[in-house]
Amino acid sequence: MSKNLTMIVRITCAVWMVFPAGTVQAHELFLQPQSYQLAVGGPLVAEVRVGEGFDGGRSIYNPDKFRRFELAAEDTLQPVPGRLGDLPSVNIETQSEGLHILIHESTDQKLRYTKFAKFEKFARHKDLTQAIAAHEERGLPKDDFTEAYSRYAKSLIAVGNGAGQDRAFGLETEIVALANPYTDDLWGEMAVQVFYRGEPRVDAQVEMFERMGKEVTITWHRTDENGHAYLPVQPGGEYMLDAVVIREPNAALAKDLGAVWETLWANLTFSVPDAP
């Protein structure tokens, strides 16, 4: 693995200094547990949040907004229970120890662009620049057009001993942790693999948000020929990763939402425990 694929640029400052309000059109959906390490029998409480800079508003439990909302524990995969309007969105009494993985797949939503410049800024931010030229090649309008989007979020939570391993769950796109941050000696580096339609994504951008206290650091990384990215992490950090795919929508999505583009957002959250 060539380390020159790992970190491109690093910015360290408060979130409001990194991205002033209104300058970035990228909004992640992410899962944020109240605690990433729990005792067996304790409640697993988590929020579905939508925002930017590793900060976002809480979303209610709403089955109309997701296709999948599940908890993987040991060899089981069960729906996250809830009632419409529940806040927090996840509140489950844990029954076993080991690595627990929350999985959330949203329904399709749409976003209207009134100016091409906003789409271009988003595409450059998420390293989707091929869409800028393709937009013109396809003869698409520049002043008023629609993008469809869907979110594929996961979160790693340790219950009891936290033993176990993340894996692919058949999402259209997803990020899989290749190490267990709660049990493995990471030596300052977390390995992940990015997938799209079950295949590794090669030379894809992974954006990483690291929260230490109230400060968030944002770094950008690339996957190698196996879809692997190697990310610098440290004890006491909370992490969010995202990787975005852009494609032409299928005929049904184009008709139903009027979309000319479709984006798919993979997201993963986890923490690295403090050193003993």
Rank of each mutant, 00 (worst) to 15 (best):
A266Q: 00
L38W: 06
Y230K: 04
R167W: 09
G198Q: 00
R138Y: 11
N161C: 05
L231D: 00
D55E: 15
G57P: 08
E120G: 06
H27G: 12
E136T: 09
V206M: 04
P20D: 04
E137F: 14
Y113F: 14
N250T: 01
R67T: 10
N180R: 01
G160H: 11
V45E: 01
V233P: 03
C13W: 06
H27T: 11
S106M: 03
A229I: 05
A252Y: 14
M240W: 01
R211T: 01
W265L: 09
A251L: 12
G162C: 06
Q130E: 15
E47Q: 11
L264S: 14
G57W: 01
D86P: 02
A229E: 12
A153Q: 10
G56T: 08
R58I: 15
L253M: 04
R222W: 13
R112L: 12
P88H: 05
K115N: 14
E28F: 15
E207V: 12
Q130Y: 11
Y196G: 13
V24L: 15
V80P: 02
P81V: 07
E215V: 15
N180S: 08
E172V: 06
D242K: 11
E147A: 11
K126N: 10
L140D: 04
S271Q: 14
K126I: 15
D224Q: 10
R67N: 09
N180T: 12
P141L: 06
Q193Y: 05
E225R: 14
H27V: 14
L264K: 07
T263S: 14
R151F: 12
E105Q: 11
S59W: 05
N161W: 11
Y152S: 04
Y36G: 03
F169L: 04
W261F: 01
L99G: 06
R58S: 15
I157S: 03
L186K: 11
T129L: 06
N161G: 13
I11R: 15
L253R: 09
G164C: 07
V15K: 07
V80N: 00
E172Q: 02
G56H: 03
L77H: 01
A204Q: 00
P200I: 09
G213Q: 09
T114S: 14
T23E: 13
L44P: 04
G56W: 05
W16M: 13
N180A: 05
T129W: 08
K214M: 13
